[in-house]
Amino acid sequence: MNKPKIKLNRLEKWKGSLDVCIRCGYCFAHCPIYKDTRWETDAPRGKMTLIYGLINGEVEPTDYVAEKLLECFYCKRCENNCSSSLPITQIFTDAQADLLEAGFDVKGTTSVTNRGQCTLCLECVRLCKHEARSYDGRIVVDTVKCQSCGSCIDSCPRMAISMNLGFGTNPDEMRSEITGFLKDDKRKNAKAIVFCCNWSNYPGFQVAELVSEDPDPEYKILVTMCSGRVQSQVIMEAFAQGAWGVLVTMCPEDKCEHDGNVRTKMRINSLKKAIHELGIGPERVQLEIVEKGNQKQFQDGVKKFMKEIKDAGPLKRG
């Protein structure tokens, strides 16, 4: 066994547990980051293997390795489905803390603040459920505490917060998906965008491109790490691109992992008023509460929404 190249004070205790991982790879199917990139390095099994290599000295700690280990949305779906019942995200957190302590300056999926744009309103500090943001003459982000929900990104009135790696969940990536879906000439049925909270339901849609499934679906599902991340601007982008309607799903009020749903509710209510002013019927933006893992509730919600949107017809231009 080689010596670890850096001090791994926290990881050391997981040595035995990493042998217990049978490397079945079932976690692939549950990881939103793996589903976005489909590289095994981004899957929980890959990261557990990297940590194993760090501990036994076979993997050189590099910026790349540190970056990979800081990529996690903490949805914990991997550990809830782990064949060996390992506390995977706790192991990741310890790896992150050890690597940061060793001096690696990487961000992974941690939110970052642009100091030039930040006006120190402290809204992000106030709302972060994970106490990852604090004020010390400037906004300080605790990279280990940050669970990459991205709620702060949407809360910032100056749009000073971003996430370098969004794996499909950043506003720009969502806008591009929306445009790609609604403005594709080959699609004749595209009508709506459904924002699907990673927690409130488990879609598992992204692994395969099922070309034999409906090739021209009426709605596109975009998975977000929290409904709180769905910005009003992104919803408006959907209307600008010709959507007939937008549905946002969120967890029941007291069950949001990030407390994002309270803001979602307020935002959607304000947005309904705003679009009404613009002559767009408020029924075009809807909110659906879905309990964690309740696929039926999700499907029924989408069905009802699509019926109402189709009854309302396309938006009138002008």
Partner: peptide
């Protein structure tokens, strides 16, 4: 294409 040693370490194993 990936050839970083970290990626190779991961793809060098299975179950």
């Amino acid at each position: 294409v990936k050839d970083d040693p970290a990626d190779l370490y991961i793809y060098g194993t299975d179950a």
